[in-house]
Structures are given as C-alpha cells and as structure tokens.
Design a binder for these strands. Sequence first.
DNA 1: GAGTGGTCTAGACCACGCG
DNA 2: GCGTGGTCTAGACCACTCG
Lengths: 244, 244
Amino acid sequence: MNLAKYKEIAATIRKRISDGTYPAKTALPEQIKLAQEFKTSRMTIQKALEILMFEDLIYSKQGSGTFIKSNAASLSQLDTGINQYIGTTALFKGKSEVRSQVLEKKLRLPTPDESEYLQLDEIEAVYDIIRLRFLDGKPYSIEHSVMPAKILKNLTKEILEKSIYYYLENKLGLKIGSAYRKISADKPNDMDQKYLKCDLTEPVLQVEQTVFLQNGIPFEYSTTRHRYDQGSIITVTKGNGAPA
Amino acid sequence: MNLAKYKEIAATIRKRISDGTYPAKTALPEQIKLAQEFKTSRMTIQKALEILMFEDLIYSKQGSGTFIKSNAASLSQLDTGINQYIGTTALFKGKSEVRSQVLEKKLRLPTPDESEYLQLDEIEAVYDIIRLRFLDGKPYSIEHSVMPAKILKNLTKEILEKSIYYYLENKLGLKIGSAYRKISADKPNDMDQKYLKCDLTEPVLQVEQTVFLQNGIPFEYSTTRHRYDQGSIITVTKGNGAPA
DNA sequence: GAGTGGTCTAGACCACGCG
DNA sequence: GCGTGGTCTAGACCACTCG
C-alpha cells in the first residue's frame, strides 16, 4: 500500500461512479457512513471527496448532501488530468508521426519585453529558436520560442528536433508548473505563407504563451502559429465553487 | 467573523506575499510556527496553505519546506479567480459599452448532435438563438446558442439583449459549473462577412463550447465567432502537482 | 428539529530531503 | 539523524437545508 488512504478511497468512489454503483444525480452516502465503511475518520473521507470535487465529479451542499454530477460518468473516463500542454509532441503521441525542423537557433540578448516576461536581467542570454512542425510529413505549425540560456543549458539540435519538454522533465529534472496563454486568429504573414503554405485567405491560429516551472520561474515565452485547418485548442474550465 | 479561520489565514498570508513580507523564492515559516502565530492547529494551517497552492502562489516539498513561487507577487494581484467565462458582458464590464442584437430566437427540436451535447431526449425543445454583439457600437462577434427550454424558461428578448448568465445566476438561482471549449481559427463565412464586415482575408476566431451547471447538467451549447482583430482568449493552466 | 456537510482541535506517526 | 511537510485520528461544535 504505497498510496495514501484518502487517495485509495477517492479511487474506490471514483470507480463506483463510473461503473454506475453510484448513479448520476443521486446523493452519495453520508460522510459518516463512508467513514464507517472504510474504517476511517470523517476528515479522511472529506479529503477523499475533495479530490473528486476537484475532478468535477461531485459537489456538495451544506445541510443537504453530496451529489454526483450528471456528467460525472463520462468525465471519470478521462484518464488524463485536466491539464494539457501544447508541447505538441505529447499530444499527438501514438497517433501520428511528428517531426520538427529547426529553422533557427541562436543565442542573443533579450528584448525589454522578453526580459520582463522571462524575469531576466538584460545581460542574461536567451535562446531564440524557430521550429517548423510536421505532422505525417505535412507542415502544420511554426513555433518561435525564447528561453533563458541559464535554464536550458547546452541545448542541442537533437533535443530541438525531439521535445524540449521531455528534455526538461527527464534530463534536467525540472518540473513544469503552469502556463499563461493568449489565443487569437490572424492573417497569414510571410513566414506562414512560405512554410505553412497558407494563401492569403487561409488564416492561422496563434498561441502566445509563457510557461513556468513548478517554482514559478518562467522558462519559455513562445508564439506558435498553426494552420487554421490543422488543429484547435481544447480547454476545460472548472467553476469556482466559492460563493459570491 | 463570517469567514472560516483557514480562509482568513490564507488571506493574511496572501497579503504578506503580495506586499513582500514573504519575498518570492524564499521559504514560508514552518507549519508549526504558523500554527503558533495564528493560535490554531497544524491541520488548519494546512487548509490555508492548500488554498494558496491552488492559486499557484506557493508549493511545498515534503522534507524540505514550503516556498513562494517566483511569479507569486504578480499573480496575487489578480483579484479574480482563475476562471473566466466568455459570458461577454461580464468580461468587458466597466470598460466599454456592450450591446446585443437578437438576430434569431426560436424554439425547435434538437439535432442528434445537440441532444447528445445537451443530454436531452429528442422530444425536448431547445431555444435556438443567434445574437450579434457590439462593443462601443461596432460588431465584434456572432454567437449562436442552443439551450434546453426546460432550463431557460420564459426566455425573453430583454434577457437576451442583456446577459443570459446574469439571468441564470440571479433570477433562476442556478449556478454555473464548468465549461468545455474548443478554440479554432476559420475563414469567414457568409454571416461573418455580412454582420462582422469581414472581407475574405479577415479570419474569425471561433469558440465552440458546452457549459454546464454546478450539478453537471449542460445548459448551453454555443458557437461564437469573433472578428480576428477584436479579442483573444486568455487561459491559465495550472500544472498538476501530482507525481508521474 | 433532525440530519447533513463545514470547520476545528491536539495530538500522533510516517515519508522525504538534506547535510 | 533531524527537521520538514504528509497523513490520520476521534472526537467536538457550527451552519445550513428541509420537511
């Protein structure tokens, strides 16, 4: 038993929701009953339920009970967490072949904007990288990344052709935290027309993002432009259960 | 004292982070010390810290300590919660004048796709609504919404010209839960050209979404198309602190 | 008023990171 | 080994909803 008790209880209840033992729109057994069944205290049951609330499977109303959401069964099938990065390689994993061509890789000093976004001094060098991404041999996006050299030491062409995210997490032992993104549509510019083969009526989907490590230090500011017919961004937004 | 103790403690610590009493990248006092200072138990301190972790202001490493993220000070200024709906009226509140023109409002039966997205029987009517949105008098988006009539009873033109979300929360007493969105870029179609005044080279940013109430029942399936130069979508994605 | 979830306590032991 | 956060207990009282 390597997992904490409350996590195991959450997993058990999650399973009962997905297999219909606890049907949608009905109330869960009361916390005291659950505590008795799992031979534990009510606080531990509450920690378990908290996980499922975070996963959006249940919600509780003080004075009334804890209820299973009507979309719970389908949500509980989603194996991955809510969060996805657009680290493109991971998203298409197993489905298609993804390849990257490095169009540019240089070291330079940051612009004022970049040093603000990346929390850098003006004397700290950044990598300036432009990559063209191919899905099954066809170009689908151009990614322009700026990353602090002090974090991404010894960035090689081989790494860039595979996945920077994989390198960060598995080789440097750094963990990705959160990301801030701005998504917009735009007319194709010269590079889009040249590399993504967009004509003037074919727009691009632009994702401008700053990605942070778990400790809150930014490690990437990038702008990615996708062909309009090659992909979309999917987001799941949880409501804030908090009262007004 | 209407707020729970752990929430007050969280607010106090949040304030100390934003005003620099606890500087970024340093460790917080240990949980025991905080428990002594606030004259409470360690579990209560942990509930307070949990809130700040959820807000991405701090992170903790077992055996080591609890640390303030380097981007914490700026994040703590954001007063709103992480979650925003594209309920357009709320987003522009106070900044500009938003107006809606109802292009269409009718009751009909759902298509097979819609009855799946909205979890409806094929005999349950839906409202089919098309609204054109104006910002300071200029059209910026077309919103096509499909909503179950059994939830949105007596939907009037007046409500549609203001905010459906406001009506739901304040008049019907329903709470919005989560939303699922797909964001993409597209060429302008006939309606975009007519109402948003897009020419053939001016793309649209499309947001297709299903919005759920707090109990998990879907109440809106909509497709909104924005002029490419009138707005973008901003998302903040939290990392999953969970181990691999 | 009865029954539910929400909060809180004052301890205990365990797991991990680090020197 | 020491100090940290992580988990857990067995209670207690409060706040809310509902019939």
